[in-house]
Design a protein around this nucleic acid. Structure first.
Lengths: 344, 344
DNA sequence: GACGGAAATGAAACCGGTTACAATAAGCAT
DNA sequence: ATGCTTATTGTAACCGGTTTCATTTCCGTC
């Protein structure tokens, strides 16, 4: 509104001048710390308000050597599991006085390295990453900077960075055991892309060396529709498959919906089991039998671990989080019931 | 490994000394800009590598006056709609060379103001906010700092900040019209909390002054289970209500699941319509009739707008995004069918 | 009324880069 | 050999804060 020819953001020196004190005094008022007389403090504060002075974050950072910012590298934000993780992570970090910058990797190690470089360039003090597969470039960067980095969604005490996560293979094994205990042998396994995704690959390990079982693996994009389509394709003709084990709940839900669209009873004719335990999985009809992954807890733990490392220099120990079977007999039933293969 | 007593991060001066050049020359090499002889450049680069030198972000920022960081304030990350928005936002911002810090507000204006303050403290150059309800404190902060701020999820050209979003009231009206055109008059309206959430309040405006209709409003937490429970409560006894209009797809899905659990046919007996168009809404059985909100597009547009403002000082104009009815006759059917109230 | 010590404040160095400007050296036409 | 450009590099100021240390002031005490 007013004609201000080239307004420059006011600085601490401007404030000092206006309040007729030294810059040191203004700095003291700003930080509340030192002992400044009440009169001076008021005068300085008045000048600050009048000039709408806000201290420069960069100038502060250069002195303290701290930016109070950490970064998180996740495959995508467009998946409930990661956004819930980040929600908890952000909340906990905020409690420790840290801000969170996010960057997405699309499960590409090169892209991860590139984005990590970007984060370091803006001055993050630490990093949260997903899984244990790094580009050598990123490893070198971490090494050189001695950057605190916590790896999540994966538990591996032998990894060179501290991990906070669950045992993916074991989670998948729990789901598999559940099915097998109910007599299922011919199982369709639905999973997301394995390229660049070591969590999925770890889960797939649970299916190695199983002489009796008969697995049918299908990779697909991680969305409900893909799994729904897959189920409609796989089960449109009678087949011997009695169960779908999805390595993510979105796929399990999709399978459930697809089967329902075909008029196939779940779990009467086909059982469906997932991994993740999304909130919506408890509400579907039938509710989904799944393996709960404690992602919020993981977010909190990772935040605390990274915070300790960044603030106090204490390198955290690996933390293993427990997974847990949910609603074991909801979308899962013994194979003795009506078999899809015998229908008609 | 090596015994390094108190290692200090190496600085540009260290590099200069090691390479036996001035700091100016090192800076030139760093920025590739100026003309440095090939020999010198190589020597400096060698020193940089040897010392694992990485320039300080803060020191750079203090000179350029730029941090290349912007912030986003969203109610929560734990909701698909926001995380998809952020996914697109982050991607587009990255394309403009900007990093994204996120902070959650829990739909509380005071908390929003507080978190915004925190973001400004770490040096964000601009802000993305949700809706058009601000705490006066935050408004003052924005004003004083002349901070570029773009408001999203809401279209209102009269708002004092540029908005990039859709017309919430109109979206709800589309959904309502759809139901009414099919003859529905007794409608249960499921919606999330209204406190601090002007998007929901705007959607509710669509139901004002409708003499013929008979609305039954229920507020509930924004999760599938809450709506499922509500539906099970509302429809367990025969009642005249023939449709559920949920102001968010998670609630619509919940209602759908709840009705299915009661054995009520959708849309045969009760129709369900949502707003959002989540990916999973296309896959449920039946697929959900809903109003598509272009949140990814909104993310991209908001990113571009804020980027232009931050980088080029061009204050963006408000942008209105179109909403669109999806799958109009999927979970919606004319009321002439079996009425729940007449069952038994 | 001089003295010791706490309280309040300022001068100036400093953090780690960038950059304006000066200086030196090399190249080349006259 | 002289003068002028151009290429290369260095000196030092500067960005906007923080902090060390010295200085001044104000007390209460003996």
């Amino acid at each position: 509104m007013v004609n201000v020819p080239e307004r420059r953001r006011s600085t601490l020196r401007d404030v000092a001048q206006k309040a007729e004190v030294s810059t040191a005094t203004v700095s003291r008022v700003l930080n509340g710390n030192a002992l400044v007389s009440e009169g001076t403090r008021a005068r300085v504060q008045a000048a600050i308000d009048a000039l709408h002075f806000v201290p420069s974050a960069a100038a502060r950072a250069i002195n303290s050597g701290r930016t109070h910012v950490v970064g998180a590298l996740v495959p995508t934000l467009d998946h409930e599991i990661f956004s819930r993780f980040l929600d908890a992570l952000e909340e906990e970090l905020a409690g420790h006085g840290l801000s969170l910058v996010v960057a997405t990797t699309k499960d590409d190690p090169d892209r991860e390295a590139e984005r990590a470089k970007g984060l370091v360039d803006i001055g993050v003090e630490g990093l949260i990453v997903s899984g244990v597969t790094r580009s050598p470039v990123l490893d070198a960067l971490i090494e050189n900077r001695e950057l605190p980095v916590v790896a999540t969604s994966y538990f591996d005490p032998s990894y060179h960075l501290p991990t906070v996560g669950y045992d993916n293979e074991n989670a998948a094994r729990s789901a598999l055991r559940l099915l097998q205990e109910s007599g299922h042998q011919a199982i369709a396994v639905y999973h997301g892309p394995t390229a660049g995704n070591d969590r999925t690959r770890a889960r797939l390990k649970a299916f190695r060396n199983d002489p009796q079982a008969e697995f049918r693996f299908s990779a697909m994009p991680l969305d409900v529709s893909a799994a729904s389509d897959a189920a409609r394709r796989d089960f449109v003709e009678p087949c011997g498959t009695t169960a779908v084990l999805a390595l993510s709940d979105v796929l399990a839900q999709g399978a459930l919906f697809g089967l329902q669209a075909l008029g196939i009873a779940v779990p009467g004719e086909v059982s469906v089991v997932g991994i993740d335990d999304l909130p919506s999985s408890a509400a579907t009809t039938p509710a989904l039998t799944t393996v709960h992954l404690p992602v919020r807890e993981m977010g909190r733990r990772a935040a605390t671990a990274l915070s300790k490392w960044v603030e106090d220099g204490i390198r955290p120990s690996p933390e293993r989080l427990d997974t847990k079977v949910m609603r074991a007999s909801s979308s899962l039933a013994p194979v003795s019931g009506i078999l899809r293969g015998k229908r008609l």
